[in-house]
Design a protein around this nucleic acid. Structure first.
Lengths: 215, 215, 215, 215
DNA sequence: CATGAATGAGGTTTCATTCAT
DNA sequence: TATGAATGAAACCTCATTCAT
């Protein structure tokens, strides 16, 4: 799932480029998250990066390449999640693995909730290849949960009419935490939300309504 | 829930204005949905409205007032839903009312799924008062489901740990139909999706896992 | 030899467009001739046209479309020459026709000598299609002279080893008047230059060295 | 005819500087010829010189000083021509000397035809002192031919109404080989072109129409 | 001597808005 | 009312030049 797009550069020092691009990804997002991509000028982005307007073009070819920097960074952020999810799948019971995986994913997402929101809002403004990157990533996450649910059904722990749909629900509900924070944050902490979400999902898919896993 | 915002206008004939604004709302959205608000010029919007660029300014004070026109129109679209939901609440059993209300809401949303998506993407670009309009509307919808779920819990039909959260889930899952159509449309028709969604929700909240309501 | 390129416009009033473009062609060239295409900003061009920077983009799609306006105008300027050259060819003796055609062409070129020079300098900066327009026009002029020289050879008035080359010489020498004015203008008026040029060419191609045509 | 312009430099080792400047002149022109002076960035020029962007500024004070390097180099290229032309003048008959001098000059120009073209196109972008260098050089060449033609008239071999004008014609026609190569190269080799040019000039200026020199 | 990252002025172009008609 | 030409601010981007290393 590596980003293949080559971004134009004036430098040959790939170490510096990597470092600066990371800096840009962080600082630029800070600026972009506030007003959105189109309403944030390159001048503002550069200022947020403590660079002159021209300097940023040393490391990107055009404004929209910034999307690529952000996506690359995001991918790195979730790498750990995919590894741990795989470990849970192999070592835990489906129910326990599902609980752990949801917890991990929701916490990871919470750490970058602004970015999650940003992607929902800006996907339309991305290039086709950037959109594909996003969709591929999404599919990967859904697949993690689908595999887990399928295993649980096979073992008889879960009873699910449509595994794929439930997997999507789990992912969508994580986005809900970012998209609806205007409401949720008033009433729940992240950990509370996770607990309730796990409860809700298990209630829907466990043979016993998830009762045996409460508490 | 009438729009409080007074849009500047040069016209005195308020009937004509109302009519024209409705026309604009429809045609403008056609143009806006493709590329988003910021990337659609007033020239393009005017052309979609079959108007001269200057003419549109008789009906709006500035480009961002178009959001108001869209929101007004959207509210009108859902008026029927609120009326019928109220009727279901009064005449049907909680389970039946929930099924009917979900069906009605999802269908209504499907008719304006582009607009739902548009709101998710553009909310950040709206004025505070426009955002409030959007949130108020959202709260109203959540409340419809909350009232229903609460009643069902009282009657013993539902067993729900957190009524508000489930209400949000129902609303979010409707948005899922719009936001994830890139995936869902490949596998489901609207009616199939609604059926599975009802099934999923009932499985989570019904004492008997929704079994008595299947089919 | 019509320019086929369609230039983007925001207006539908083709009369106004034609009028404004002609104005732009005249005023823009005034600005462009001084410093060349690349060193004249659109801001300067617009000012020379008594327009705001943005206004000029109502009538052109990009800065380089200005080349097209200039070429169109130049073409119109030489139309009369082609007509008269044709008349000379049909009614006069080759020697007389050649004298008249050279006179007419050199005078026409003199009226637009800045533009001739401009084309020599800017051809490289033009688009391929613009360059083709220029070359096609050049070929047409060469052909006018080639046809005349060929006729003169057939009638025995001229003795020419390579008709095409002489035709090119005649055209190049007209450019010489524009390109070398820093020198020529010091010593010759246009009419003197034309007289001497005719003399020089006739000396090179007439059986009697052009003696019978002197004076 | 040494360059008067003092180019700012940070270096004291004037030998190295001279060497490097020559290298730059060659390599830089390679880059400049393609797109012209204004459309070739210092970055591109430096790359063509296998130098870092900053290094080139040890040898020039600003981008436009590159014109000086090119002019210096070009003058060196033609030095041999001036020497041989002088020898021809002193040892050969005017007609033979003219033939030889034209041949030598056209061949020299052919070797740097891209540069000749470049000068026509970029003269306007040069500084006044650079333009003067160019004009002085041009005048020197014209003078070479003027002296020769004058001698031939005195000896009775040539009959020329205006010696200066014919000298200019000879020079302009050499440029024609560079400027009109899009056409000429299709039909002539350099040597053919030279032969025909000599023939054409002699036909125009020799008492016998150049017949005695053909073959 | 040599490097190349950094700068910011200035280039072209777009676009929301106004206003004479 | 309706029009659409005109405006100029501000957007993205390039590039000659400098300077710390």
């Amino acid at each position: 799932m590596a980003l293949k797009t080559k971004i134009r550069t004036y430098s040959a020092d790939s170490d510096l480029i990597a470092r600066r691009r990371q800096e840009i990804a962080i600082a630029a997002f800070h600026a972009l998250a506030k007003k959105g991509f189109d309403r944030t000028s390159v001048r503002e982005i550069a200022k947020a990066c403590h660079m002159a307007q021209g300097t940023i073009y040393y490391y990107i070819g055009s404004k929209k390449d910034i999307f690529d920097l952000l996506l690359t960074q995001a991918k790195a952020h979730y790498e750990e999640f995919f590894e741990k999810a795989d470990a849970y799948f192999k070592t835990l019971s489906p129910t326990q693995a599902l609980k752990q995986t949801i917890e991990d994913f929701y916490r990871k997402l919470d750490e970058r909730q602004d970015f999650a929101l940003f992607c929902y809002q800006e996907a339309k403004n991305m290039s086709p290849s950037q959109q594909k990157t996003l969709l591929d990533w999404d599919r990967s996450v859904v697949d993690v949960f689908r595999r887990l649910l399928t295993k649980g059904c096979a073992s008889g722990e879960f009873v699910i009419a449509d595994v794929t749909l439930v997997a999507h629900h789990i992912v969508v509900d994580s986005a809900m935490w970012a998209v609806r924070r205007w409401f949720l944050r008033e009433y729940y902490t992240l950990e509370e939300y996770i607990r309730k979400e796990v409860q809700f999902i298990l209630a829907a898919i466990c043979r016993d309504g998830g009762i045996s896993n409460e508490g």
